[in-house]
Design a protein around this nucleic acid. Structure first.
Lengths: 116, 116
DNA sequence: CAAGCATATTCCCGAAATAGCATATTCAAT
DNA sequence: ATTGAATATGCTATTTCGGGAATATGCTTG
């Protein structure tokens, strides 16, 4: 039952939900993109992404100086369902629209390479 | 964004997840049935049910000396989706099977009346 | 190797969540 | 009115969580 707790605890934070919604929307993102879109301090963002990673909800890969995070699709069905619900819930929020806008107007975003 | 946090925080506890799974399985249940099925102290169960109620995930009604709790179906779609995922996740756990067994073998369960 | 950017980690603190125990409240029956 | 069962609440101790600031690590380029 610890696993369920881990999953839902990971979902129980606005910053983490906003990160998930951004990834659902834009695919792979690096930490500085989250930082910019959320308008939040980098260590804070980094720590929250670590929580998502440790819960197995996201994967990360290094590309040059960036670390790119993306949704992990390889999760149990019920987890995917819960995450889908979470993302839909966040997508309806004005705050999320602002996040998307800030992301899209961000300058100096890292070049996009293909994932493995 | 506080609402999302409330919902997922409510789901981020094993006792509460087990309660939800029991209700999904057996419909309306009174506190003493939860207490017996979960094999947990009554005040603890009562407080966790209060968290679920305050999050809007369950409803309660009084019937004579009992208070009956049941899943609230009148929630946003994304909430229903998240809860469905949670319940599925719990349903696969051995612990939940034991909860169901303890509930079914419980003696002195309150008589079932019809809800309004 | 030095410098600079991107990211992760550590430390400390205040806020919030949880458990356990005792006690209060509510209702039914006598 | 009193008793007993069912439920809720209050209190305290403990733990967990999130934020902020500083710092460390890793990668890239010159």
């Amino acid at each position: 039952m610890d696993y369920q707790r881990t999953i839902f605890s990971a979902l129980a934070d606005p910053i983490r939900l906003r990160c998930l919604a951004l990834m659902a929307n834009a695919g792979e993102l690096c930490v500085c993109e989250f930082t910019h879109a959320l308008d939040a301090p980098q260590p804070k963002v980094s720590k929250h992404l670590a929580v998502l990673r440790e819960a197995g909800l996201v994967g990360d890969r290094r590309d040059a100086q960036w670390v790119l995070y993306s949704l992990n699709r390889d999760v149990p069905d019920w987890v995917a369902e819960a995450v889908a619900g979470a993302v839909k819930g966040v997508a309806g929020e004005p705050l999320h629209r602002e996040d998307v806008r800030r992301l899209e107007t961000m300058t100096g975003r890292p070049p996009r390479h293909r994932a493995a």
